[in-house]
């Protein structure tokens, strides 16, 4: 059984011009020890999907559908049940390490406060765990780092501290929202290696959100591509990157210069702009930018097409169905 099973997740946010759905009917799952990548342009609802898992949507945001974690429905949890889940079972690393660490609290406080709360351990025991965690994420001089404030560290080091924070209570699921953006390439590689290693050592399940093809190809087992709050395609990383079948995914990948797996250019290079929240086009939301769009695409919301047991697309037109995987990229 999967660790996380999400069904028909819809997230409604309050905007200046009324309520709008930032995530629409999203279904996906993450297996034990699996790394799922979630990709899509800015505003496609990746962060809102992640926040739904923790019940931490922005003010006046609402989620509906079903989220099963470890066999238990959690979307209907009380505040208290959510608190017992957060940090302890599901931990999250936020998009920006420069703003997600508290500027006035020492690293020690931030690394140990939830450990002490959830596990009821003593201050000394918590400090020892914190030292181990800092060593795990390869922070030099852990003892000195404990006494320091976040401002004394570089972006890459802060991201490592954020990862250590997330790991403190040994969660089963780690959600990493853009863990490598804003970091330079060598630092990125270090963080990716670290996540890989953690998965292997702790059988940790990871949901990693990213714009970055390099991260997707080298880190993830499976990928889900999102557009305007919905899934457009998902499949095993190798299948999806070599043989993208949805026009959107295809466009994203084809637009990459060189197209090699080590390339770390952003996925964002398709003509036109992604639609804004509250203004998602009808039918297949991608029809305003799609070269293969037919009249029917504007009407009905696309049904799923299963290409094999793991690979599926949400495009009934399926324009590349005859093309084999080899030589389909130009």
């Amino acid at each position: 059984m999967n660790l996380l099973t999400v069904e028909n997740l819809t997230v409604t946010l309050a905007t200046g011009s009324g309520d709008a759905q930032a995530v629409r009917n999203l279904s996906f799952n993450v297996g034990h020890g699996e790394i799922l990548g979630v990709a899509g342009e800015s505003g496609s609802g990746k962060t809102m999907t992640a926040l739904s898992m923790l019940g931490l949507l922005p003010y006046k945001g609402k989620a509906s559908g079903s989220i099963k974690f470890d066999g238990r429905e959690i979307l209907t949890s009380s505040k208290r049940e959510y608190r017992d889940l957060r940090g302890k079972e599901i931990a999250m690393i936020f998009q920006d390490p420069m703003t997600s660490l508290h500027p006035m609290l020492t690293v020690e406080v931030q690394l140990t406060e939830h450990l002490r709360h959830h596990r009821k351990v003593s201050k000394d025991a918590a400090r020892n765990s914190a030292l181990e965690l800092l060593a795990t994420v390869k922070i030099p001089e852990p003892a000195a780092a404990l006494r320091a404030h976040p401002s004394q560290f570089s972006g890459g080091m802060r991201q490592r501290i954020a990862i250590a924070m997330a790991l403190a209570c040994e969660p089963k699921l780690l959600i990493a929202d853009e863990p490598t953006t804003a970091l330079d390439v060598t630092v990125q590689a270090g963080i990716l290696k670290l996540l890989h290693q953690l998965r292997k050592e702790r059988n940790l399940s990871v949901m990693v959100i990213t714009h970055d093809l390099g991260v997707l190809s080298s880190l993830t087992d499976r990928i889900m591509i999102m557009y305007a709050g919905s899934e457009v395609e998902s499949g095993l990383t190798t299948d999806l990157l070599r043989n993208p079948r949805h026009p959107y995914t295809k466009g994203l990948i084809a637009a990459l210069p060189g197209n090699s797996a080590s390339n770390s250019k952003n996925l964002l290079s398709i003509d036109g702009m992604p639609p804004e929240l509250g203004n998602f086009p009808t039918g297949c939301a991608f029809h305003t930018r799609c070269n293969y769009a037919k009249e029917s695409c504007k009407g009905a919301i696309p049904e799923v097409t299963n290409l094999n047991s793991t690979h599926r697309i949400f495009c009934p037109i399926n324009p590349f169905s005859e093309v084999t995987s080899a030589g389909s990229q130009s």
């Binding site: 923790l54 957060r86 703003t99 500027p103 924070m165």
Partner: peptide, 20 residues
Amino acid sequence: DYVRAARAKGLPEFTVIRRH
């Protein structure tokens, strides 16, 4: 963001308010 991060750790709301 750091308040959301504090909540994501499952701390009691009182602690989040007082400390963060």
